[in-house]
Amino acid sequence: MTEAHPKPGLSEQLVEGLLELIADERLAPGDSLPTVRVLAERFSVTTPTIREALRRLQTTDAVRMRHGSGIYVGDGIHRTLMPNPNSAPMKDELILQLVDARLTIEPGIAALTATNRSEESLQRLELALDTAKRDSTDHRPHLNFHRELAGGSGNQVLFEVVDSLLSARGREQKALRALIEDRRRDYEEHLAIFDAVRSGDAAAAEEHTRHHLEQLRTEVARQLGRAE
């Protein structure tokens, strides 16, 4: 006998209803939604109930609630992959696995970016290179080189994979950066990747990225006392 799927609860139904509303109205990130009171009336629920559904959507950045301003569609509305915002800190072995995952994924992404490069993606990569040279007191927006490298690939799913690894695992990424002793070498390896992407050399972009991440893995393994 096939087990029936449980009926979604009210909160899940409201989340689905709100997402359908956004889709039906063709709302984009930054567009405003009706007020909580109007939404509650629309779905025939109390305002605390609709707020709970909105908070669930807020955790994945599908909506943004701004006190005194309103409710807006968030950038996360178009994400196909979503990192776990409540993930526990990684142990040493998992930090190495994180580098291994990037080593598997990012060289191919670099090759794709070299093929699909645009003037905008090259400018953002160059800004990311500049970020690495800034003083710690410089409060201008910081761009992550590997995130921008994935963003230039033209593949939203691949970008979200890398973005999830870098964003959801922020603690581990910060720990990884702290383990990099030779900052100059790290910058020069990024520069080599950028030059290959800019020239449209997919093979070189892939090779430089693989070499860069292999160096990172070796350094991390050594720092964690797991040199192979």
Score class of each variant (00 low, 15 high):
Ser121His: 09
Leu143Arg: 14
Leu125Cys: 02
Pro89His: 13
Asp138Phe: 05
Asn86Trp: 14
Thr80Lys: 10
Pro89Gln: 12
Pro141Val: 11
His142Trp: 03
Leu129Met: 14
Leu81Pro: 00
Ala114His: 05
Val162Glu: 01
Val99Tyr: 09
Arg124Ile: 05
Pro107Val: 00
Pro85Asn: 11
Arg124Ala: 12
Asn144His: 15
Asn116Thr: 06
Glu119Gly: 01
Pro141Gly: 03
Glu126Tyr: 11
Ser87His: 09
Thr131Met: 05
Arg140Lys: 03
Leu125Ile: 06
His139Gln: 10
Ser121Gly: 05
Leu158Thr: 09
Arg124Ser: 05
Val162Gly: 00
Arg140Gln: 07
Arg124Glu: 12
Glu93Cys: 04
Asn155Cys: 04
Ser136Gln: 14
Ser153Leu: 02
Pro141Arg: 06
Ser87Ala: 15
Asn155Lys: 07
Leu129Asn: 04
Pro141Cys: 03
Leu81Ile: 14
Ala110Gly: 06
Val161Lys: 13
Asp100His: 14
Lys133Val: 07
Asp92Ile: 08
Ser87Thr: 12
Glu106Asn: 08
Pro83Gln: 01
Glu148Arg: 10
Asp163Glu: 15
Glu93Lys: 10
Leu149Gln: 00
Arg124Gln: 12
Gln97Lys: 12
Ala128Asn: 11
Val99Ser: 08
Asp138Ile: 14
Ala132Tyr: 09
Leu81Arg: 08
Glu148His: 07
Thr131Tyr: 06
Leu103Tyr: 01
Thr80Arg: 12
Glu120Val: 13
Val99Thr: 10
Thr137Met: 07
Thr113Val: 10
Leu149Lys: 01
Arg117Gly: 07
Pro85Val: 09
Ala111Met: 00
Pro141His: 04
Met90His: 10
Asp135Lys: 10
Glu119Arg: 15
Ser136Asp: 12
Leu158Ile: 11
Leu112Lys: 12
Arg134Gly: 01
Pro85Arg: 11
Arg117Asp: 07
Pro89Thr: 13
Asp100Lys: 14
Glu93Met: 07
His139Lys: 11
Val99Ile: 14
Ile109Asn: 03
Ser87Met: 11
Leu112Ile: 06
Pro107Phe: 00
Ala114Gly: 11
Arg134Met: 08
Leu94Thr: 13
Glu126His: 14
Asn144Lys: 03
Gly108Ile: 03
Leu98Ile: 04
Pro85Trp: 09
Arg117Tyr: 08
Ile105Val: 15
Pro89Ile: 14
Pro85Thr: 10
Leu103Thr: 01
Leu125Asn: 03
Val157Glu: 05
Ala88His: 11
Pro83Asp: 03
Ile109Thr: 02
Ala110Ser: 14
Ser136Val: 12
Thr104Ala: 15
Phe159Gln: 08
Arg124Asp: 09
Gln156Pro: 00
Val162Arg: 01
Glu119Ala: 15
Leu127Pro: 00
Thr137Glu: 10
Pro85Cys: 07
